[in-house]
């Protein structure tokens, strides 16, 4: 049997390919099989890599302002990753990158996660506790202000001590609660 592409050389490769219309079998010689590059990634077959996806997204939508934007692109102070480079490699360099690129990330996540941009899952216990304590301190502080305004000084003193106690707990806690503490 001759190669169905060049019709010259004998068939040495039988290429089975999954296509949207069902599997297709092609009888090729090794040269044609190689030249046709059917071995390389078929976009219909392979899900696009994040790298490909991000860089296509960038070049597709920001061709014009790219040069300009490159100059004002934020750069992570911790690891030196620029937003541009992030889109190229599709990976963050460090946790601080999230803070650095925060404003631009919802767009990235929206595309990757089917429109979702905000975490709705598990929250680490230490982070949760810390948030709760901070809220508590804020609440007590308001109550204390209120007590001072209405000249209930004894109560204000009690509240002040309570705030002190919570603050002590906050700083004694297991490390910091999370990257978004903004401390």
């Amino acid at each position: 049997m001759l190669c169905e592409n060049c019709k010259e050389r004998p068939v040495s490769v039988i290429l089975k390919q999954e296509t949207p219309g069902g599997p297709v079998e092609r009888n090729l010689c090794d040269q044609c099989a190689f030249n046709l590059q059917t071995f390389s990634v078929n976009p219909n077959q392979e899900p696009m890599s994040i790298q490909q996806f991000l860089s296509q997204w960038l070049t597709g939508e920001a061709v014009q302002p790219q040069a300009l934007e490159a100059q004002v692109m934020p750069e992570c102070p911790e690891c030196g990753l620029t937003f541009h480079r992030f889109l190229e490699i599709g990976k963050f360099g460090c946790p601080v990158c999230y803070e650095t690129f925060r404003e631009r990330l919802p767009r990235v996540f929206g595309k990757l996660h089917n429109g979702s941009t905000v975490h709705r899952g598990k929250i680490p216990a230490s982070f949760n506790e810390k948030m709760a304590i901070k809220k508590q301190i804020e609440f007590l502080r308001i109550s204390m202000q209120d007590a001072i305004q209405t000249e209930r000084f004894e109560q204000a003193a009690v509240l002040r001590d309570e705030i002190k106690e919570w603050k002590r707990k906050l700083s004694a806690g297991p490390e910091e609660g999370g990257a978004a503490d903004g401390e």
Binding site: F92, Y98, R102, H113, A180
Partner: peptide, 21 residues
């Protein structure tokens, strides 16, 4: 251990396709 966690984005990961949970 001091986990990298963010209120908005959840668990911070190297690849954005893992961010969140």
């Amino acid at each position: 251990l001091p986990y990298a966690f963010d209120e908005e984005f959840g668990y911070l990961t190297s690849c954005p396709s893992n961010t969140g949970t």
